[in-house]
Amino acid sequence: MSRRSLRELPLSYPEVGATRGPLPGDYHHLVRHRTIGTGATTFRAAAEQLMHWDLHRRAGLTVAPTTPSAVPGTRVLLGLGRGPLTIRFGCEVVYVLAEPRRRGFAYGTLEGHPERGEELFALEWRADDTVVLTITAFSRPATWWARAAAPLSRAVQRRITRQYLHAL
């Protein structure tokens, strides 16, 4: 998949923005949290890394975004695996959190992605001074081979989520 064709693909699901809640039915739901540290310095540094795709790179994905930072409309080609076994799939940033104590973004799957759905990566600097990374997602298989390998797909999603949570 080229960057040009990535720009031409439509989103593959109708519930755009639904990671804001409530999560739509008829999907697998995932919500995971991890405290990554405390204080303003931790929050600002983690937000900078998150918004510039470092979380994804550190989790082991290849990342080819259409913009250096996550902004609404950014398209990103992600890769999972190595060599000829790499699976590539596209997503679009559908909204951004840009609040004084909350930063992050959600992206949705594009046609051709093995799953259909949306994922939110949110950092929160809480009143108790802790900085918490939360990942919220809803998804379901979009291809025949993803449906056939659904238990494996869920295991891969859980593994990548754990890697995301420890990447910042």
Rank of each mutant, 00 (worst) to 15 (best):
P114A: 04
P141C: 06
A127W: 11
R34H: 13
W53Y: 13
L6A: 07
T143I: 01
R20S: 11
G90R: 06
P114H: 12
S2T: 15
R103H: 11
S153M: 14
G21N: 01
S5Y: 09
P14H: 08
Q157A: 12
H28Y: 11
T42G: 02
L85H: 10
A70Q: 02
R3N: 12
E48I: 05
T109R: 01
P72A: 13
R20L: 11
A149F: 11
T161E: 11
T62M: 08
T67S: 14
R147N: 02
A122W: 00
V131S: 04
G21S: 09
V93F: 09
G112H: 11
R154E: 11
W145F: 14
E115S: 08
T41G: 10
A70I: 04
F121M: 12
V71S: 07
A122F: 00
Y27M: 03
R102M: 07
A155R: 15
L9R: 15
A45E: 14
R82M: 13
V63K: 10
D129E: 15
T74E: 01
A167I: 07
E115H: 04
V156P: 00
R4G: 05
R44I: 05
D129N: 13
A47W: 03
P114Y: 14
P14Q: 09
Y13T: 10
L97K: 02
I87E: 10
A106C: 01
Q157H: 09
P65M: 05
D26I: 05
Q157E: 07
T109D: 06
A64F: 03
S69F: 02
C91Q: 13
P72F: 02
T35V: 15
W53H: 02
Y27P: 00
T109M: 08
G60F: 02
V156Y: 09
V31H: 08
S2A: 06
T41D: 14
E111H: 11
F138N: 05
G90H: 07
H52A: 14
V156W: 04
G81Y: 03
D129T: 15
R3I: 14
G39S: 06
D128T: 03
L6P: 09
Y13W: 09
A127F: 06
